[in-house]
């Protein structure tokens, strides 16, 4: 379902070219749960941005659900992000001044879908945070915010959830409940890719990809 073929990403910093990704290839089947590990500066964030259609590779092919997305325009990528991807960020990235429910409704608004209220509430139920649907993000704990963010990621029935250090701001007990939630969602058939630098988070996934200096140095299935 996801096919990265010889992907490179080169940034021009002044006169110097920085190779953030250097010929990365890997594929991922529907229903997999993968962790991507690496130190900061290893290229894992760049990989996440390209996987998430937020950025285009300098060279190489990226096929998502049978569609070549490496050369699409900004607006075409926005539609792909909306329809096929769900994002979970380290710092939650909820809009601060609207309720949990309104945050979860946002992707449906951009998708132009109906029955948003019901669907958003269902997503909040799936992440067990529907009791807080009328609350503002600032009234919630980190774990609760991350549950709302995950609800937002799944509300539009994505093919893949991309989670960038989803437990980075959480204590270890909360981290484990969030990882349990991801595992649960994965059992229901959603593909999940998690970027992390913590080994015990990566331990939740069967497959782990290690990145260093813009290259995949290990792709291990337990």
């Amino acid at each position: 379902m996801i096919e990265l073929n010889n992907i490179s990403k080169i940034y021009q910093v002044g006169e110097v070219e920085v190779k953030a990704l250097d010929g990365v290839s890997f594929s991922c089947e529907k229903g997999e749960m993968i962790s991507i590990m690496g130190h900061s500066g290893s290229g894992k964030s760049t990989m996440m941005n390209i996987l998430g259609c937020l950025d285009r590779p300098t060279a190489g092919q990226y096929s998502l659900d049978g569609e070549d997305v490496a050369k699409l325009s900004d607006d075409q990528l926005a539609v792909i992000r909306n329809k096929k991807l769900g994002f979970v960020f380290q710092s939650y990235n909820l809009l601060p001044r609207i309720t949990a429910l309104a945050n979860v409704e946002l992707p449906l608004i951009y998708a132009g879908k109906n029955h948003r209220h019901t669907r958003a509430l269902e997503a909040l139920k799936a992440t067990e945070i529907d009791k807080r649907s009328r609350h503002l993000p600032e009234e919630m704990s980190g774990g609760e915010k991350q549950r709302v963010a995950i609800a937002r990621a799944i509300v539009n029935d994505p093919l893949v959830i991309l989670a960038d250090e989803p437990t980075g701001n959480l204590d270890s007990a909360t981290s484990h409940t969030i990882m349990d939630l991801f595992t649960d969602l994965n059992r229901r058939g959603i593909t999940i890719i998690i970027v992390t630098h913590e080994a015990d988070i990566a331990a939740y996934t069967r497959r782990t990809i290690r990145v260093s200096d813009g290259k995949i140095i290990e792709d291990r299935i337990r």
Partner: peptide
């Protein structure tokens, strides 16, 4: 800016 980033990440196009 961050709000705009979030909106774009979850599928807002330029015209939105």
């Amino acid at each position: 800016t961050r709000e705009i980033g979030i909106r774009k990440a979850i599928g807002a196009r330029r015209r939105d």
